[in-house]
């Protein structure tokens, strides 16, 4: 008698957590795991840089070649592009195509400004004889900062293809999923840049 009522009130017994497990789309989790593996690539490059950071081989030291004001400007570009990417995501959720495209364009322009400033810095270094072949320090510097810059460049190419797709097909499910992956990637690049400007530039010129 009592067990019967107990069973009735409990309803169908559930042996799994319905809300927590089994995400409906595994794409975002998969992309997160890609980002984590990319983090490991950067960790290796940071470790290499940390070991080689004072191996100047008689060549230029960070104090001589790094320009902190340029890096400050660069950091601002990337941080602003990060928040405009967030604005694009908010417009995407509201299903406003034109506004989404506008903020994506702004994001791309700030990203391009970042890459442009970084390329100018790199060409300047090579021109004054501080290229990657000069010392172990400079090799590690160019590899770490260059890998980040390559990621940003690829991110911009991805952004342009996404903008074309959104312009042609609208904010359909496939495009919003891709946008969320892109947004994750872009914010991730900003996180890596925090490590770069702190360790490579600010600690470098101390």
């Amino acid at each position: 008698m009592t067990t019967e009522t107990a069973l009735q009130t409990a309803g169908t017994p559930a042996f799994y957590v319905t809300e927590e497990e089994h995400p409906h789309s595994s794409t975002l989790l998969g992309f997160w795991i890609y980002i984590m593996s990319d983090t490991l690539i950067f960790a290796v490059l940071f470790a290499t840089f940390g070991v080689l950071r004072d191996r100047y081989a008689g060549g230029p030291t960070p104090q001589e070649v790094l320009e902190i004001p340029t890096v400050a400007l660069n950091t601002a570009m990337l941080l602003i592009s990060s928040i405009t990417c967030g604005f694009a995501m908010l417009e995407m959720v509201r299903n406003r195509k034109a506004a989404t495209l506008f903020w994506l364009l702004v994001t791309g322009l700030f990203g391009a400004a970042f890459v442009g400033l970084e390329l100018r810095e790199f060409f300047g270094l090579v021109a004054e004889g501080a290229g990657p072949q000069r010392s172990a320090y400079l090799s590690a510097f160019f590899t770490l900062v260059g890998t980040h810059g390559t990621h940003v460049t690829i991110g911009i190419i991805w952004l342009i293809t996404l903008m074309v797709q959104i312009a042609r097909k609208g904010l359909i499910h496939e495009n919003t999923r891709r946008l969320m992956c892109f947004s994750m990637f872009w914010h991730f690049l900003d996180v890596i840049w925090i490590g770069v400007f702190s360790v490579v530039y600010l600690l470098g010129v101390l």
């Binding site: 409906h24 789309s25 950091t75 604005f87 908010l90 499910h173 919003t176």
Partner: peptide
């Protein structure tokens, strides 16, 4: 459904994060 499930933040959240990031930079 992917959109409804995934966290996408709020304007307030983004601005708070941006403000903190600027100060911490």
């Amino acid at each position: 459904h992917a959109l409804a499930d995934a966290p996408h933040g709020t304007l307030k959240g983004y601005l708070t994060g941006f403000g903190l990031a600027v100060v911490l930079t």
